[in-house]
């Protein structure tokens, strides 16, 4: 889920770089030196998960895992996603340097938002509740990603309304898939190591 280079208007590029830098600085402050390995490993895991392809008719879709990253990292999702997207831009030319601010904002803002939603809902959560909340977080994160992407396209030029609508429709299956995968992946983590999930109060 990348916006390609050359599409976004200069004013929006500048604004999103400023917002991304603010998120990055705050995220790095919240991370602290002791948590850098955790953020780095999850950033690398995000990078690897984007290679997971799920067949959909004649085409494939790839996972994005922003919901899962958001649940596990909170504000640290900003540096984690920024670094992963920077490496994707340099190594594979997905996205790019100029549009890196936009792409980070598109991915990280919904991730941070679902983190707080999940944290609020998960206190004294049962397994089923955690799973449902994680599914909702995964789906809502992708909805947020897609809406932001469409917003950036239409904000750059109103003529991009049709491609923006196309982006929204094309990502509908991914919203469902991300919801299911996030729910089941968090369920796996809950069973294996519940202490890794944020603010869990175990209920027997």
């Amino acid at each position: 889920m990348h916006v390609s280079e050359g599409i976004i208007a200069p004013a929006l590029l500048g604004g999103s770089w400023l917002a991304t830098m603010a998120g990055l600085v705050y995220g790095m402050r919240r991370t602290g030196p002791a948590k850098i390995p955790r953020v780095a490993l999850l950033s690398a895991a995000f990078f690897v998960v984007t290679f997971v392809r799920i067949p959909l008719g004649p085409a494939h879709m790839h996972l994005v895992a922003t919901g899962l990253i958001g649940i596990l990292l909170g504000w640290s999702a900003f540096p984690a996603l920024f670094v992963a997207l920077l490496l994707q831009a340099i190594l594979f030319q997905y996205g790019g340097l100029a549009v890196l601010g936009v792409n980070t904002l598109i991915m990280a803002l919904p991730a941070v938002t679902v983190h707080y939603g999940f944290r609020l809902g998960v206190r004294r959560g049962t397994h089923a509740r955690v799973m449902w909340l994680a599914g909702l977080a995964g789906a809502l994160a992708v909805i947020g990603n897609v809406l932001l992407m469409a917003g950036f396209l239409v904000g750059s030029d109103p003529a991009f309304a049709a491609p923006a609508l196309g982006v929204l429709i094309a990502h509908l299956p991914l919203i469902v898939v991300e919801g299911v995968v996030t729910a089941l992946a968090v369920s796996f983590l809950y069973k294996a190591r519940p202490d890794l999930l944020p603010h869990m109060e175990m209920v027997s």
């Binding site: 955790r38 490993l41 999850l42 690398a44 895991a45 690897v48 998960v49 997971v52 799920i54 067949p55 996972l63 895992a65 899962l68 596990l72 898939v177 299911v180 995968v181 996030t182 729910a183 089941l184 992946a185 968090v186 369920s187 796996f188 983590l189 294996a192 190591r193 890794l196």
Partner: peptide, 17 residues
Amino acid sequence: TLRTHAVAVGALFLRSL
């Protein structure tokens, strides 16, 4: 497929952590 991929993603994140 979704369940298998979800467990694989969960396992990858667990090992990362």
